[in-house]
């Protein structure tokens, strides 16, 4: 077994295995660090930066940083909360997110974080970027207006030969998510469902089932995002 280590998050004593990513170890200690791109046990992308924490005075992404013995992590400080809120606001202006008409509303991590950080009006000017919708696959919609470039689909949705269904195209300001029309034409129901489930926003949708779960009964309709992790702390005192 791996070496056990001790460290603190906002002064709270935590323990975990050396070398594992901070965001996972924190969760096991009942501390919620917000994520948009991270997915446990998948190679991290480190792309959304919402998990930014400060370790010994340095800003790092909690999903790509292994825990070290004795480190002191800052997580819920006003400075970091403002940074995270800014990132959420930035995502709302750089894409086109019309929550009331979105199939993912209530199940969307971005929207969940918007509520958590009590976002009212974004501080940044809207970009009103035009992006297309790819409906070529019989099973899925790719609604690029909502993509937040988390790369979950790029990393996790592959066919049996390891080929990608999704990939980035372009770079910088021209970056977009793209879908392989050839192989997406034959994507299985299970994989289409998985793609929709892992997409943190409403960019990947399985056709015909967008509203299968009624509004009101969705993930974040009644509890805030991150509550499952923090409740763990309440029920067992933060121990695994």
């Amino acid at each position: 077994m791996s070496e056990k280590i001790k460290f603190t998050i906002d002064g709270k004593q935590c323990e975990g295995e050396k070398g594992r990513y901070l965001v996972d170890v924190a969760a096991e200690n009942g501390v919620y660090i917000p994520v948009l791109c991270h997915w446990k046990d998948v190679i991290p992308a480190g792309s959304c930066r919402i998990c930014t924490v400060k370790i010994n005075g340095r800003f790092v992404a909690a999903c790509t940083t292994p825990v070290e013995d004795g480190c002191n992590v800052e997580n819920n400080t006003p400075e970091l909360q403002d940074i995270r809120k800014a990132i959420v606001e930035m995502l709302f202006v750089e894409g086109n997110h019309f929550c009331p008409s979105c199939e993912k509303s209530g199940d969307c991590d971005l929207q969940g974080l918007g509520y958590l950080y009590q976002m009212m009006v974004p501080r940044f000017p809207y970009a009103f970027e035009r992006r297309e919708l790819d409906a070529s696959s019989p099973k899925i919609f790719l609604e690029k207006n909502r993509c937040i470039f988390c790369k979950r689909c790029v990393r996790m949705i592959k066919d049996e030969k390891g080929k990608s269904y999704f990939a980035f195209k372009g770079r910088g300001k021209d970056l977009e998510i793209s879908m392989d029309k050839t192989i997406a034409a034959n994507i299985s129901d299970e994989l289409a469902q998985k793609a929709m489930d892992i997409c943190p926003v409403g960019a990947i949708l399985k056709k015909e089932v967008g509203f299968a779960t009624p509004i009101g009964q969705r993930k974040y309709d009644n509890v805030p995002i991150g509550a499952d992790i923090e409740n763990l702390q309440k029920t067992n005192g933060g121990k695994k």
Partner: peptide
Amino acid sequence: FEDESCGSCITCRSFNMI
């Protein structure tokens, strides 16, 4: 920078545009 950001951090991608 707006052109040359690789775009894989959404902060670098978008803030350079903004």
